[in-house]
């Protein structure tokens, strides 16, 4: 049995989670600080992948990064980068698609912290960055773990977006969910079952680990 789709999926989920941690933390912090119409619009855009059909998102990403037009053409001409039908393209699509899973829980956790925690830190002479890393972030660890796990698990299960932008290239863009679909199309139910069982097992272990780690912090990993 070809295990490369499973390994590729795990690699994609791990890279997406790390990138989204780096991108999501500052965005969530910024969104949590105050409300303005501009922030509401940004928040709505970030939330769109939750409700938008993945194929629609994938279609627009395919158009945007097609080497024949706009950004895709510019990236190819200037940097010799092609995102469509490539692993970096899958990463980009996964980052955009899983953005709300990372930002939502972290933003909510930051908003639930008492504003006086940050204020106390400011009166001690600490700037916003010091306050974030020494006071705020350590007190939302459980939510950050939840967000990272949800992002990882969500990326494992991506199908529509990755199929649209990545296609089905073995060893390059053929992730586990596409391998399952492919196996079913070819009536190879044994392979489809094996890929599905492995995906189910990894996802179950990932989700249950959050329940265990957050046992004393939250009633459910989704809180």
């Amino acid at each position: 049995m070809d295990l490369s789709p499973i390994l590729l999926t795990l690699k994609l989920a791990a890279i997406t989670t790390v990138l989204l941690l780096l991108i999501g933390l500052p965005i969530a912090w910024w969104l949590s600080k105050s409300r303005s119409i501009f922030k509401l619009i940004i928040e709505a855009i970030i939330t769109m992948p939750l409700v938008l059909p993945p194929s629609v998102l994938g279609f627009y990403l395919l158009l945007a990064f097609s080497p024949q037009h706009g950004i895709g053409k510019w990236l190819r001409d200037v940097f010799d980068i092609q995102l469509v039908f490539s692993f970096p393209g899958l990463i980009l699509a996964s980052v955009i698609y899983s953005l709300p899973f990372m930002i939502g829980p972290i933003k909510s956790a930051l908003q639930q912290l008492s504003p006086s925690l940050a204020q106390a830190s400011y009166t001690l002479g600490k700037n916003e960055r010091q306050t974030f890393f020494h006071v705020l972030l350590p007190n939302i660890r459980a939510s950050v773990l939840t967000a990272a796990t949800l992002t990882f698990a969500h990326t494992l299960g991506e199908f529509g977006v990755v199929l649209m932008i990545g296609g089905n290239i073995p060893g390059v863009t053929r992730v586990a969910s596409i391998a399952v679909y492919d196996a079913v199309e070819n009536q190879d139910y044994t392979a489809a079952n094996l890929y599905s069982l492995i995906l189910f097992g990894i996802t179950f272990i990932t989700v249950i680990s959050v329940f265990v780690f957050n046992k004393y912090k939250a009633k459910s990993p989704l809180e």
């Binding site: 008492s114 925690l117 204020q119 106390a120 830190s121 400011y122």
Partner: peptide
């Protein structure tokens, strides 16, 4: 000027202690 520059000592009514 910012709270960091004023650097007053502030005892909050509900303490605002850092749980971590």
């Amino acid at each position: 000027i910012s709270p960091q520059e004023r650097k007053v000592g502030f005892v909050f009514q509900h303490y605002a202690l850092f749980p971590n």
